[in-house]
Design a protein around this nucleic acid. Structure first.
Ligand SMILES: [Zn+2]
Length: 606
DNA sequence: CCCCCCCC
C-alpha cells in the first residue's frame, strides 16, 4: 500500500510548508451557493484529517473527469495555506499528482482523527504562517495582450517562456494572499497580481451622481478578479497601472460580482478605496499572462444570449472592414466580421470593432482567442467583442496549438454547422426536433434539456402577462408600487421614479401529440407579438381592446420553438416546465424538407 | 459608485 506522509496535516495547519506531501482524499464536497464550481476536500494523512482544503478552480476538471475521487491518494505538488477570519485555515491545492486512484485504494487508510482547531489558535501566536511555496520551476507562457489592441503573437515565438516563482512576501515583509482567498469579510490582505486587462477611463452621470472610473482584471496563480477605481483613485492609479505588469495591491473593498458584466472566475469584485495601495512588483513571477475559461462553440447554442464568455477558434474566413452608424448617437464605427471554427464542427461569426477590426489580418487563418466576448442571438448565434474583452491572435497556449493542428490536418475542409447562418425570418432554428409528448418523457434528469418543437399557440393567459420591473438594465425584478409615483426594487435596494414593462407570457402550445403550457419571456415575446414591452404595457393601461388584439394575433399560428425544459419541484411534486429560447414562424419548404429527411430515416433510406 | 459596448 502506498504510504501517506503521516502527520503532515498537523504540520501544515501549524504553519509549516512541507514539500510534496502525500495525502488521501476522504470525501469531496461541492461548496453550495457558490456561483463558481468549487470543491472542498476532506484530507487525511493517515493520522490526522481536516476539511480545510479546497481545490484551485483550475483543477476542477480533475474532479469532473473522475481523475480524483474519494479515497484517491494524491501528492500536493503546490499548495498555499492561509488564515482566513479568526483562526480558520484554508489550504488551496494549486497542483497535484494522483499517486493512486480511489478505485485502486478502495478504502480509508488508517483511522485518522480531525486535527484539533483549538490547538491552531495557540500555535498562531508563536509560529509565523507560511504562505506560497516556491515551485521548483514553473513556466508561464510569455504572451502579450492588451485591452485596446489585438496582440499579435506568431506561433514561431512559442517557446519564449518566462521562468519565475511565486512571490511570497510583500515589500513590507508581510505575507502575500492568494486572490482565491479574498472575501468581503477579510480586512488586511495584500495580493500580488498581474494586470491582464485595463480599460480606458469612462465617465458616468445618472440619478445617483456622476464620476469617472476605470477597471482592470487581476490574475495570480490561484485566481482572477476584476478591480475598479473611481474618481480620486483614477487620478492616483490610472497612469501607473500597466497591462501585463505585476503589482502588490492591498486594502480594497470586496463585494459580490455582477456576473452579467464579467465572466471572471470569482464571485467577488474589488473597488479601490482611499486606503488602497498599489506597488509595482519587480520580482520574476510565475503568474500567467492570461487565464481563459473556454467554452466550445457547440455550447453556444444552449447558452443564454448576452452571456459573457471565453472562446477560441480558427479564423476560417475574414470579411472586409465595414462602417456602421450607431442608432443612439449617430457615431460612426468600424467593424469586421470573421468566422471562427473549432473541433466541434461549429462555426460562428465574431465581430471585431475599431482598431482591432482595422489591424486584424486573417490571411494566415490564425487562431483567435477572446476572453470576455458577448454572445448574441443575431442570425441564431453570434459573438461580439466588447471594450472589456481581450483578443489574442495565435496565443501560445495548448488549446491554440491543438486547434491549429486540427485545422491544418483536415479541419479546414471539415463540414461545419454555421451557428450564425440563420439569416432573417425564414431561417431554421437548429436540429433535435421532438414532439411535445416525446419531450415530456424526459423526466429522468434534473439538468435542463434543449430541443426544438413545431407547434401552434392555442391559448394564452393575457391576465398577468405583464409586470412592472426595475428600470435598471438587466435587473428585471418586479418593483413594488409605493403609491406616490415611486417604485421600489428590493433586489437593487433602490427606489426609482420610473419602471419598465416586461412580458412573461404563458402560452399553451399544441402539436399532433400533446399540448403544454410554456413560458415566453421578454425578448421572445416581443418578437412573437411584434411589439415592445413598454408600448404594450402602456397600451394595456389605455386601450385594453387593442392590447388584446395584439395578444390574440399570435393564436392559431405555427411556430418552430427552441425550448429549454427542466424538471422543477413544487411542494415535493415534480413538474415538467419549458420556456422558449428562440422562435420562428414555420417556413413550409424547410418544414417539408425536415419531414422528408425524417421519413427517409424512418424507412431506412437515409 | 459603473454596468455603455454599437450594425446587420
Ligand atoms: Zn433592480
Amino acid at each position: 500500500m502506498e504510504s501517506l506522509t503521516t502527520g503532515v496535516i498537523a504540520d501544515i495547519v501549524d504553519g509549516q510548508h512541507p514539500e510534496n506531501p502525500v495525502v488521501q482524499i476522504l470525501t469531496m464536497k461541492r461548496i453550495p451557493n457558490s456561483s463558481q464550481e468549487r470543491w472542498r476536500l476532506l484530507l487525511s494523512d493517515g493520522k490526522w484529517s481536516n476539511s480545510f482544503a479546497m481545490l484551485a478552480t483550475q483543477l476542477n476538471p480533475k474532479v469532473d473527469s473522475g481523475a480524483i475521487t474519494n479515497n484517491s491518494i494524491i501528492r500536493m505538488d503546490r499548495y498555499v495555506c492561509n488564515t482566513v477570519q479568526e483562526n480558520k485555515k484554508v489550504l488551496i491545492i494549486l497542483d497535484l499528482s494522483v499517486i493512486m486512484t480511489g478505485a485502486e485504494v478502495g478504502k480509508k487508510i488508517g483511522t485518522p482523527v480531525t486535527y484539533d482547531s483549538s490547538k491552531i489558535a495557540a500555535q498562531q501566536q508563536e509560529q509565523p504562517q507560511q504562505q506560497y511555496k516556491a515551485p521548483a520551476s514553473k513556466v508561464a507562457p510569455n504572451m502579450s495582450s492588451a485591452g485596446g489592441n489585438v496582440a499579435r503573437i506568431p506561433l514561431a515565438q512559442h517557446n519564449a517562456l518566462a521562468k519565475g516563482s511565486c512571490v511570497t512576501k510583500t515589500p513590507s515583509g508581510g505575507n502575500v494572499h492568494p486572490i482565491e482567498s479574498l472575501t468581503p469579510y477579510q480586512n488586511r490582505w495584500t495580493i500580488c497580481a498581474r494586470v491582464t486587462n485595463k480599460s480606458t477611463i469612462r465617465t458616468w452621470s445618472n440619478s445617483r451622481g456622476e464620476g469617472k472610473l476605470f477597471s482592470m482584471d487581476l490574475l495570480d496563480e490561484t485566481g482572477e478578479i476584476r478591480a475598479t477605481a473611481f474618481n480620486n483613485e483614477v487620478d492616483k492609479f490610472y497612469d501607473m497601472i500597466e497591462v501585463d505588469k505585476v503589482y502588490f495591491i492591498s486594502s480594497a473593498t470586496l463585494k459580490t460580482a455582477n456576473k452579467q458584466y464579467s465572466n471572471l472566475n470569482n464571485e467577488y469584485e474589488m473597488s479601490f478605496n482611499r486606503t488602497t495601495e498599489v506597488t509595482p512588483c519587480h520580482e520574476q513571477t510565475a503568474i500567467p499572462t492570461m487565464q481563459f475559461n473556454f467554452v466550445s462553440l457547440d455550447q453556444l447554442e444552449s447558452l443564454q444570449k448576452d452571456a459573457i464568455l471565453d472562446v477560441i477558434g480558427v479564423c476560417k474566413e475574414t470579411h472586409d472592414l465595414s462602417h456602421v452608424v450607431m442608432k443612439s448617437t449617430g457615431k460612426e464605427l468600424t467593424k469586421r466580421d470573421i468566422q471562427i471554427v473549432d473541433t466541434t464542427a461549429r462555426e460562428v461569426r465574431l465581430t471585431l470593432w475599431g482598431t482591432q477590426a482595422e489591424t486584424f489580418d486573417g490571411s494566415q487563418q490564425p487562431v483567435v482567442a477572446v476572453k470576455g466576448v458577448k454572445l448574441s442571438d443575431f442570425n441564431g448565434r453570434s459573438l461580439s467583442v466588447l471594450s472589456s474583452s481581450c483578443v489574442q491572435i495565435n496565443p501560445d497556449i495548448q488549446e491554440a496549438h491543438m486547434l491549429k493542428g486540427w485545422f491544418d490536418n483536415g479541419g479546414n475542409v471539415a463540414e461545419t454547422v454555421n451557428l450564425s447562418g440563420k439569416g432573417g425570418q425564414a431561417g431554421s432554428i437548429g436540429g433535435n426536433f421532438k414532439l411535445i409528448a416525446e419531450a415530456k418523457q424526459n423526466t429522468g434528469t434534473d439538468q435542463p434539456e434543449y430541443f426544438c418543437a413545431k407547434g401552434c399557440i392555442v391559448m394564452i393567459r393575457k391576465e398577468n402577462s405583464m409586470y412592472t420591473a426595475c428600470p435598471r438594465d438587466g435587473c428585471n425584478k418586479k418593483v413594488v408600487d409605493q403609491g406616490n409615483g415611486m417604485y421600489r426594487c428590493e433586489k437593487c435596494d433602490q427606489t426609482y421614479d420610473t419602471f419598465q414593462w416586461r412580458i412573461m407570457l404563458q402560452a399553451c402550445v399544441a402539436d399532433i401529440s400533446d399540448s403544454q403550457w410554456i413560458s415566453i419571456f421578454q425578448d421572445q415575446a416581443e418578437q412573437l407579438l411584434n411589439t415592445n414591452a413598454n408600448e404594450l404595457g402602456a397600451l394595456r393601461e389605455t386601450n385594453k381592446d387593442d392590447f388584446e388584439k395584439i395578444m390574440d394575433a399570435i393564436l392559431f399560428k405555427n411556430y418552430n420553438f427552441k425550448l429549454r425544459s427542466k424538471i422543477e419541484t413544487y411542494n415535493g411534486e415534480n413538474r415538467w416546465k419549458a420556456s422558449v429560447m428562440n422562435l420562428n414562424p414555420v417556413d413550409p419548404q424547410e418544414h417539408s424538407r425536415r419531414l422528408i429527411t425524417e421519413i427517409k430515416q424512418l424507412t431506412g433510406q437515409a
